[in-house]
């Protein structure tokens, strides 16, 4: 698998969530994603970028365009050095929140992605990687 391009967006505040959405949209268009595919990955990115701002003290979003044989995909990596998540399974459940949100962010982002990885522990920060492949529902 090849990574054809990589872009890193620093995420510190609410305005950066909008910047992540725009950067992910552009990468998805460049890969030829359909409008629905674009909207799904941009929405997932918006949820995860906001989580970094609200709970992780900010972080980075890395946008990688992937080429795997005939497959084209977009991988997004969200990394923060915040407090981390004590119970990942609980955090993935719809409706669970420690803040004022609706608790749809993590579970929703997972549903909107083809692949979802999460790596987090208390005091260790959080790293979430999501991938969507073009043409896969």
């Amino acid at each position: 698998m090849q990574t054809s391009s990589t872009e890193v967006v620093q995420v510190g505040g609410g305005g950066d969530v909008v910047r992540v959405r725009h950067a992910v949209r552009k990468a998805a268009i460049d890969l030829g994603f359909s409008l629905v595919e674009q909207t799904k990955i941009v929405t997932a990115a918006s949820e995860l970028a906001r989580n970094m701002v609200d709970y992780g003290g900010g972080g980075t979003t890395t946008i990688e365009s992937l080429l795997d044989g005939n497959r084209k995909g977009l991988r997004l990596i969200f990394k923060d050095d915040g407090p981390g998540i004590a119970d990942v399974q609980q955090a993935l459940r719809d409706g669970f929140t420690t803040g004022s949100g609706m608790g749809l962010g993590l579970g929703g982002a997972r549903r909107l992605s083809n692949e979802f990885e999460i790596d987090s522990a208390p005091g260790k920060g959080t790293r979430i990687a999501i991938t969507r492949w073009k043409g896969i529902v």
Binding site: K40, M102, G107, G108
Partner: peptide, 14 residues
């Protein structure tokens, strides 16, 4: 609401 937004919102759980 755009159709792609509606599809995504429901999948998101909203």
């Amino acid at each position: 609401m755009q159709p792609s937004v509606a599809i995504t919102l429901v999948e998101l759980g909203l």
